[in-house]
Design a protein around this nucleic acid. Structure first.
Lengths: 258, 258
DNA sequence: CGTTAACGGTAAACGGTGTAAACTCCCCGC
DNA sequence: GCGGGGAGTTTACACCGTTTACCGTTAACG
C-alpha cells in the first residue's frame, strides 16, 4: 500500500490528463461520434498508444466512460427530482424515474453503454465500477427515504431465499446499504424487484424493441410505474403521483447538456 | 412484382449460398468467435467483397443472424414447452419462460444480439425482421391459448390509451394477432405488459447488471414470474405452476446445440 | 446461333480500428 | 551530476468494413 504523500507535480499532471481522457471520451459519445482511442488521443493532441500509459485497453476506457455518463445522468435525475420538496421522497422518486426514462429515450447510445453493456469479465474492475454506480445509489436512497416515511412491507430475512439473504446482507450491487439495519435489509429485495421492473420497460423502450407508438404514448412505462405505487405504500398517494408522473411525462426532454 | 416462375439453376445456387452465409455467420457467433464479413467469407472459401453481392452491409448480416438465432432459440423454447401437454398452455408458457431465461444466461452473446441490439434506423428492414420475430409469435400464441382457457381480464378498447389502441388494432410488434377479434385486442396489452416484465429480469440477469448470487438463485426471475400468475387468471394453478417452475429452474442448461 | 448484358466472383486499395515494441526525451530523486 | 523511470512518439502488425476495377461464366434475346 503506497504511503499517503503529498502529490508531486508529476502526479498532479498525470491525474489531470487522466481526467481529460475520460472527459474527452465522454464528450465523443455525447456528441454522437464513435468512441475510439485514436479519436480521443487526437482531440487531446496526442497519439493513440500514449493512452496506454493511462488505460489498460479499450474496454477499460469504455467502462470509465460508462461510469462518467452514469454520473452525469444522475445529476440530471437529481435536478428533475429536486423540483419537488425534500420531504416528499415519493414525488422525487416518481420524477426521477420519469427523468431516467427521458434520458434513456433521448440518449439511447449512452443508455446502452451504461445499462445494456454486458458485464463479460467475471472478476474485473468492471464490477467494481458497477457497484459504485451513481444512479444506483441515488435510487436506493430515494427508496429508503420512502420506506422511512411510509413503512411499506418488506420480507424479513428468514423469508428470503438464503442466497438472496446473503446478497442483501453483503450487497455487491449499487446500494448505499450501510445505513440500513441488517434486519431491514429486506428493503433491498424490494429495491431489486422494483428496479428490475423499471429497468425492463426503459430498456425495452430505449433499445426500440417495442412498438414506437407505445413508446410515444408512454403508456407502458406509466402503467409499470403505477403498479409499483401500492407495494411501496403509496396507494393513498396514487392520485397526486399519477398527476405528477403525467406532468413529467409531458415535459419535453431538457436541452442537451454541453 | 416478379412473376412466379420456376427457379432457374442460377437462382437456386444463389439462394443456397445466401443461406450458407447466414448459417456460417450464425455458427461463428455460437462458437464464440467474432462476427465479421471476412471471417464468414473465409469460412466459405470466398473473399469478403463477394458477400456484398448478397448483403447490403455488415449491419444487415447482423440482423439476419439475429433473426436466425431467434429462430433457433425458439425451437429450444418449444422443445422445453412440449414436455407438457398441448392442452395445458399455462404449463407450456411457464416452461417456455424458464427456457427463455436459461438461454439468455447460457448464451449472453446471442441474447444481446437478438434482444438488446438497439434498433437504430427508423424505417429499415430491421423493423420488418423484428416484426417477424419467431419467439415473439410463440409467446403471443401461448398467451392467447391461456386466455382461451382461463379468460383472464383484459382492457376493452376504449379503456386503452388511444395510441395504444391503434397499436393493438394494427400491431407492428411480433404478434400473430390476425386471429384475435379486434374487440379482444386488449389481450395484446396484457401481452406487452407481461413481456416487458419478463424481458426486464432476463435482460438484467443476462447482461450481468445484477448481483451474481441473485442470478444464481433465480429468485428475482421466479418472483417476477409468480407475480404474473394472478393477472393471467392462473391464481388457482399457483401451486402446481410454482412447482413446475422450480423443477425447470433446477434443470441444467441443455448441451450446446451444434 | 451469336451477341449482349447481367451475375458472381476476384484482387487491390482506402481509411479506419486496437495494440505491441522500440525508441526519445525530460523530469525527478539520489 | 547522473541514472532511471515515466510520458510520449514512431513504426508496425493484424485486423476490420467498404469501394473500385476487372474478369470469366451464365443466361437471355434478337
Amino acid at each position: 500500500m503506497p504511503a499517503l504523500h503529498q502529490p508531486t507535480r508529476r502526479e498532479r499532471q498525470r491525474e489531470a490528463t487522466y481526467d481529460e481522457i475520460v472527459r474527452v471520451a465522454a464528450e465523443l459519445i455525447t456528441q454522437g461520434a464513435e468512441l475510439s482511442l485514436r479519436a480521443v488521443a487526437s482531440r487531446m493532441g496526442m497519439t493513440a498508444p500514449a493512452l496506454y500509459r493511462y488505460v489498460a485497453n479499450y474496454q477499460e476506457l469504455v467502462d470509465l466512460v460508462a461510469f462518467e455518463l452514469d454520473k452525469a445522468a444522475t445529476q440530471d435525475f437529481m435536478a428533475t427530482a429536486e423540483k419537488y420538496p425534500e420531504d416528499d421522497p415519493a414525488a422525487r422518486l416518481a420524477a426521477a424515474c420519469v427523468a431516467f426514462r427521458r434520458w434513456a429515450l433521448t440518449k439511447p447510445r449512452e443508455f446502452a453503454l451504461v445499462f445494456a453493456n454486458p458485464i463479460v469479465t467475471e472478476e474485473s474492475d468492471r464490477r467494481e465500477l458497477l457497484t459504485l454506480s451513481t444512479s444506483g445509489h441515488y435510487f436506493t436512497d430515494l427508496l429508503y427515504e420512502i420506506w422511512e416515511l411510509y413503512q411499506f412491507p418488506y420480507p424479513s430475512l428468514d423469508e428470503l431465499d438464503p442466497i438472496v439473504r446473503d446478497a442483501v446482507l453483503n450487497p455487491l450491487i449499487p446500494a448505499k446499504a450501510a445505513h440500513i439495519e441488517p434486519a431491514d435489509r429486506g428493503i433491498l429485495w424490494i429495491y431489486m424487484r422494483s428496479w428490475s421492473a423499471l429497468y425492463g420497460v426503459v430498456t425495452l423502450e430505449s433499445t426500440g424493441h417495442c412498438d414506437p407508438r407505445v413508446i410515444e404514448s408512454g403508456a407502458l412505462f406509466r402503467a409499470t410505474l403505477l403498479d409499483w405505487l401500492e407495494p411501496l405504500g403509496l396507494g393513498a398517494e396514487t392520485e397526486r403521483l399519477t398527476q405528477l408522473i403525467d406532468t413529467e411525462l409531458a415535459q419535453p426532454p431538457a436541452a442537451a447538456a454541453g
